[in-house]
Amino acid sequence: MRGPVIRLSLAFVILLVAVPLAIVLVASVSGGERLTFPPESLSLNPYRALVGNDEIRAALGRSLIVGFQVVALSLIAGVPAAIALVRFRFRFRFGLGIYMILGVATPLIASAFAFLALFTQMGALGALWPISVGITIVNLPFLMFSVASSLFSLDPRLEEAAATLGAEGVQTFLFVTLPGIMPGILSGTLMVFVLGISEFVISLLLFTINIQTLPIAMFASMRGPPPPEVAAAAGLYVLAAVLVVITLTSLKSTEQFFYRAD
C-alpha cells in the first residue's frame, strides 16, 4: 500500500461502491412523510409502511417464491450438469461449456424477448413459473461455475479411496463427492437466489398486473414521487446482499481451508 496514487484510487473505489449502498440504507430509515435526501430525521417509518402496504408485501412474497423456484430449478439442472462437465469426457464437452456461458452473455432484453414469445405461444403468461424458468436459464451458469470450481479443487483421489474402501458409486457420491462440493453448491445457491429475488428485465416482459414481483412493483411505484416503502424494500435488498457476501466469503475460506491443493 505505498504511493499516494494507489491510496487515492483505492479511496475513490471505496467511495464509488459506498454511494448507492449509503443512500439506500439512509433513505430506508428516513423520518419524513415523503422521501428526501438527506432525510430531515430518522425513523423506521419506511419499514412500517412496507409492512402496511399490501401490494408491496404481496410482491415481496412473490419475489421470494420466484427465488425459491429458481434455486430448485437451478439445483436440479445445474449440479448434475456441472459434475458431468468436469468429470466426464464426452464429445462437444468444451463446446457445451462455452454454450453455457452464452446464457449469461446474451443481453437480458434479448433473452427476455425470446421467453415472451415462447410463453405467449404456450399461453403460460400470467403465472409465476415462466418468470422463474426464464431467470433460471439465464443465471444457471453462476451455479454451475460455482459447483465446477468446487469440484476442480476436490482431490479425485478421495473418490478413488472411497472405492477401495468398499463404497459403490452412489455411496461415494453421497458421502464423499457431495460433501466435498457442498461449499460450491451453497454459494451457487445463494447467488442464484439473490439473482432470482432481484431480477428485473425478464420479469418486466413476462409479468401481468396480478403477478408483480418486488422489483416490478418498486419500479411501478416510482413513476410518481417515491413512497417510503420503496426505500425500505431497497434497504432489504442491500441487507440481503451484505448477508450473501459475508456468507460467500466465509464459505470460500472454509473451502480453501479444507480442500487446498497440495
Partner: peptide
C-alpha cells in the same frame, strides 16, 4: 471385479483422508 468389491486396502500419496 469393480474396485469396491476387491477388498484391497490402499494408501494414496495424498493420503485421501476425507476432510469433512
Amino acid at each position: 471385479v469393480p474396485t469396491h468389491q476387491r477388498n484391497i486396502g490402499m494408501v494414496f500419496q495424498s493420503l485421501a483422508l476425507f476432510p469433512h
